[in-house]
Amino acid sequence: MQAEIHSHDFTPSCRVTVNGVNLHYELYENKADRNAETIILIHGFLSSTLSFRKLIPLLTEKYHVYALDLPGFGQSEKSRTFVYKLSNYGELIIDFMEKLAINQAILIGHSMGGQVSLHAAKHCPKKIKRLILLGCCGYVKRASRSVICCSYIPFFSWGMKTWVLRKNVKENLLAVLHDSKLVTKELIEGYRKPLTEEGFFHSLIRLLRQREGDMERKDLQSIQTPVLMIWGREDKVMPVKTGYRLQHDLPDAKLIVYDDCGHLLMEERPEDIVRETVSFINGDQHVPYSEPS
């Protein structure tokens, strides 16, 4: 089934309340094809819809595209009631789809957003047609009990803020991009702004306390949804060996690895990602994947 799109016009920036949490999302409709398939973009840790800025114009040539800020991030509510677990984020994606009458969608998740996408597919496989995981987070354990206990110490939020901002935004971007020339003033400001949102660091602490570990092998093996994984070989945040391990544990997964590319591969290889995405969605049988060296 294709996604049902409401008949009235949308502005790109929208808000909706799902399970008591106010969410910000952007909707880009494909006016040329009302029956086009729907893609939902799910960002990673310390990020927002901004991370898909180069993919969106390319994807909207063929698809309806939703880009969502997860609770606690971007322009979405820094909720004090939402339980910041990956499984809850996954269920929220399904509930978001129900709220907006999206019958079925393809999810594109980056980093932590990849784990969220996997949880959504596990929670309600009939609504998720395919998964495209970009530098997907994997096999990260839950925070230690001692760290969680420390999070209740007064002024811990100040320490958390210091930890996140110990490098300036430019240095953080240089760490996730292989090509340093892509770190522009516009990009720096775009990533800096959400870090100043009121309540952001309190949400971050809740995520630290409540986030369970990433999916284990038995859970990954239960996901029958077709998966395309794309990785940067120079990814310093989530090394490519994680991609090979996920490829082994997921029943129906292909892996593509780009040379000279880091963790924020949507900035470095948007055209290639969209080309592989279109091929994968169309069910082409010859999607290439790299072998471990």
Rank of each mutant, 00 (worst) to 15 (best):
Y25Q: 11
L246G: 00
S157N: 11
L118V: 00
H123V: 05
E234T: 03
R211K: 15
G232R: 08
W231E: 10
L207C: 14
G109N: 02
C14D: 10
I40E: 09
G74R: 08
K129Q: 15
Q224N: 07
Y28C: 04
Q2L: 11
S76T: 06
R145Y: 04
S87Y: 01
L86F: 07
F73V: 05
L264V: 06
I230Y: 01
C14V: 06
P194T: 03
G114T: 03
L228E: 00
R15M: 04
Y84S: 10
R269M: 09
M1L: 12
D179E: 10
L195C: 08
L207K: 14
P251C: 07
T225M: 06
L207F: 15
V176A: 08
R269Q: 12
V116M: 02
I39S: 06
R145V: 11
S279Y: 05
H286D: 13
L264N: 07
A121P: 01
I223K: 00
D179N: 15
R130K: 13
P270T: 07
H110P: 01
L182I: 05
T38V: 06
P288M: 08
K54P: 02
L204H: 12
K241H: 04
A120W: 09
H8N: 12
S111R: 03
E171L: 08
L58H: 09
H263S: 10
G283W: 02
R206N: 14
L187Y: 10
R269H: 12
C136Q: 05
S180H: 13
F280I: 01
M238V: 09
E77F: 06
L133P: 08
A175W: 12
L86Q: 03
M215H: 01
H286P: 07
P251T: 00
